[in-house]
């Protein structure tokens, strides 16, 4: 963290009881929803470490379900997430795992879209409601959501980075951090770009249209 804002100290406004086990869990699921697209019909959650051990007392399960439904961490209806899921036709499954994990507050979320597309992410709640996404569809990466973040799914090939950064430069969007990850040469790859200014939907749509290699663009 660069330096604390007053609202890091007096805030965030959140639905209790725990910034890491409730608010953070909700944010991990919010992020999964953005990555997978919003037409989700089923979600499977695997809780690890302290999430598995004390999660039910902290409403971690409800916060995860609420996050997939798009509730924000300060939404008081997180408590009624299961009822809301039923109403929305979202199928929910929970697994508790004793497998060792790198961070004690970890959740794996596998979501299925109405088209049958499955997206799987691994998220960590690292304290104070802050999170880290460390895996998307089996690919190791790191996204914090502290800055506006643009994520691209594309086919590994020359020129994609240049195309994307050119558009950002033209729109006066400054890149704070940028990383590329790939399954292998010429295969599926991801790019995460953390920016100082948010990237509008119009710019995201522009980027998708620039190359056949770009599969999907989403923002966190």
């Amino acid at each position: 963290m660069a330096d604390y804002s007053v609202f890091d100290i007096i805030g965030p406004r959140m639905t209790g009881p725990s910034s890491s086990h409730t608010a953070g869990a909700c944010r991990i699921a919010n992020t999964a929803r953005r990555i997978a697209g919003e037409d989700i019909i089923a979600a499977e959650f695997t809780l690890y470490g302290s999430f598995a051990k004390t999660g039910f007392g902290h409403g971690t399960d409800k916060a995860l379900v609420a996050g997939i439904l798009g509730f924000s961490p300060d939404d008081p209806s997180i408590a009624d997430a299961y009822e809301a899921a039923q109403k929305a036709g979202l199928k929910v499954e929970l697994c508790l795992s004793e497998a060792p994990v790198e961070h004690p507050n970890t959740a794996r979320i596998s979501v299925t879209s109405s088209k049958g597309e499955v997206t799987e992410i691994l998220g960590q709640s690292v304290g104070g409601g802050n999170i880290r996404i460390v895996e998307i569809n089996g690919l190791d990466l790191e996204i914090t959501g502290e800055y506006p973040t643009l994520i691209l799914q594309y086919r590994d090939m020359p020129g994609i980075v240049a195309v994307v950064t050119h558009v950002l430069a033209q729109n006066k969007i400054n890149i704070a951090f940028m990383r590329v990850f790939r399954h292998g040469k010429g295969l599926d790859a991801y790019m995460s770009i953390e920016t100082d200014q948010p990237v509008s939907i119009a710019i995201r749509e522009l980027i998708v249209g620039l190359s056949d290699g770009i599969i999907k663009v989403f923002a966190i």
Binding site: G11, T15, G16, T22
Partner: peptide, 8 residues
């Protein structure tokens, strides 16, 4: 009770 508060 999963009500809304301000972390402070």
């Amino acid at each position: 009770a999963m009500g809304c508060i301000v972390a402070s």
